[in-house]
Design a binder for these strands. Structure first.
Lengths: 336, 336
DNA sequence: TTGAAAGCGCTACCAA
DNA sequence: TTGGTAGCGCTTTCAA
């Protein structure tokens, strides 16, 4: 900037004004400065600028998600990026892998880099440690899972309602033995989805069978193994409600391997790529992932801009997408 | 930091030394400073630090990809994040959507934020504009597509070889009319994959039929439409080579809709989630996406550290994964 | 409309 | 081992 000022024969302050589009600079100086900037390929240092500027904004936000490579997280990321663009803001995404320790590290990094805000799908179960950050100017918005031990904005799915609908849908096709396959219990969404499942069973007057509830399935392989176990029970389930997309895929893998994919009904929570290319096509309860992301980042920017309105929690509706796998009738004789 | 120094009763400089783990501080002062830091919840400002520090590193890198939500980009992102972690570096990811204008904007943002380096899957076709940046201390590594109008490090797949293998594989199963379905010609990988396809046809003594080459298919829907057109030709292809995962999915969608999925062979470039859950399971030429990302970020860090060795281009092997769709024999009577 | 000086939070350099 | 001082690149404040 000094160099530009020297070349244009003006003060450093005038260059600053031109760079920031101040209206109070004469056309001639503006022209001279622009030319000098171009000639020297000058790029203002945003970090230095934010250090001194009144608002102190870095125009960077942090997005802490489960895994940037998983479709749910990646879609969320994209939705957030699109809105951040319109605010000239960069998005730094970090994968937590359900590791609370990693969450702490990344939050600390975000704070040390003075990011303007944080959007988080938390891995930890107590977020009290964020209290100080939030009250010293780093707003935090929770996504997918509510904050615990802390009052903060959150954008969630109606997990219970979605799971209820999935289970009731299977029951409506005559299923009485509907298995629940879920991820780790420590994840709030899993509990909520289980509650919806349980409530639907109760409302339909169906028995709750402990042995057809499988959890702590953290990847497709675990889900595949669990499904195998379920189908080998003396009295196997005739339908599966899988509470997450990797679990759905693992379960389907096993059903195919056992030749049962046209005989055992499946409804999955979360849509996934190619779900409508499988045979049978996979009926799912889809979350509005893009909508969730959009809402969350809007809320974050609103907080960043100083909005001090009361904390706010939004639950987005899910949508049942009927494709075939969830409409198979109960099938006898699965016992081998 | 000033506050911490005051509370601990030491100079600001001593606090700095403690924060940076300088060995030359007495245990007692170190202890006092640590306690004061904790009490005030002090977080050093990394931006300010980098502004003054000798190396000037911000510990941030930019990753410019097609779309953070697409599986190829997302996997790349994850590989890069993992290595960046070990360097205490955050990754800013931005989606270019194949838009050269967007590429310019994001490169500019990366430069203005003084990111330590850039990894790019370019959307533009002339990267000369990056020359200045690269020689003023922002290393750039290209991924998936080579630089043009610029000499720079690149990590690529052996696209030609992979496409050759896919096409030859189909030919080995007796196919003579193998269609090529590709994305936009302006993308270098598409051209390279077409070259492999063409070369394989030539080597097998197969005719090249212009009418069964479809390109500029930028999404699954376009691929689906193109496939429909191909299959309605008087003399339709008996096999498809789809040069990208969205194209593969679109083509399969149409084959299923036309009831041809067990009669028309398919080999796709790029593996995709659930490819092994389809019926038939999808034979693909898989890229080592994780390996590409790892190599690229390692190279970038090496350049950031000052490595001035000659520019370097790496081509990673692809892998044919035989699953079923690529081993269907030619089928007559497709004409309707 | 323009510029000089101070200072954002931190580290480099040199002195004690 | 510790601290003072200057200054990174920029914006603010205030004076011209």
């Amino acid at each position: 900037m000094r160099d530009v000022a020297a070349l244009a024969g003006v003060s450093i302050k005038t260059v600053s004004r031109v760079v920031n589009g101040s209206p109070e600079v004469s056309a001639e100086l503006r022209q001279r400065v622009s030319q000098a900037s171009a000639q020297l390929e000058f790029h203002p240092n945003l970090a230095a600028s934010s250090l001194r500027r009144r608002d102190g904004k870095t125009r960077q936000v942090a997005l802490l998600i489960e895994d940037v490579a998983n479709p749910f997280s990646a879609t969320l990321h994209r939705a957030i990026e699109d809105v951040a663009n319109t605010h000239d803001t960069l998005v730094f995404a970090g994968s937590l892998d359900e590791d609370p320790q990693r969450e702490l590290e990344l939050v600390r990094a975000a704070v040390q880099h003075r990011m303007d805000g944080i959007i988080i799908v938390p891995a930890s179960s107590d977020h009290g440690y964020l209290h100080r950050e939030m009250h010293t100017g780093t707003p935090v918005v929770f996504v997918d899972r509510p904050p615990r031990g802390l009052v903060a904005d959150a954008v969630l799915s109606d997990n219970t309602g979605g799971a209820y609908r999935a289970t009731a849908h299977l029951a409506a096709y005559g299923h009485r033995d509907i298995a629940f396959l879920g991820d780790d219990w420590s994840i709030r969404t899993v509990v909520e989805r289980y509650e919806g499942y349980e409530r639907a069973l109760a409302d339909q007057g169906l028995p709750r069978r402990e042995e057809i509830v499988a959890c702590d399935l953290s990847d497709a392989a675990a889900a595949a193994r669990a499904t195998q176990g379920l189908m080998r029970l003396p009295n196997p389930p005739t339908a599966l409600f899988t509470s997450q997309n990797l679990v759905t895929m693992g379960a389907i893998e096993t059903l195919q391997a056992m030749g049962l994919h046209h005989r055992v009904a499946v409804v999955g929570f979360d849509d996934f790529p190619a779900a409508d290319l499988l045979d049978p096509r996979v009926t799912v309860v889809a979350q509005d992932v893009f909508g969730i992301g959009t809402l969350a980042i809007r809320r974050l920017f609103s907080r960043i801009a100083g909005d001090a309105s009361p904390v706010w929690e939004e639950r987005l509706e899910t949508r049942l997408i009927v494709r075939g796998s969830g409409e198979l009738p109960p099938s006898d004789g699965l016992i081998r």
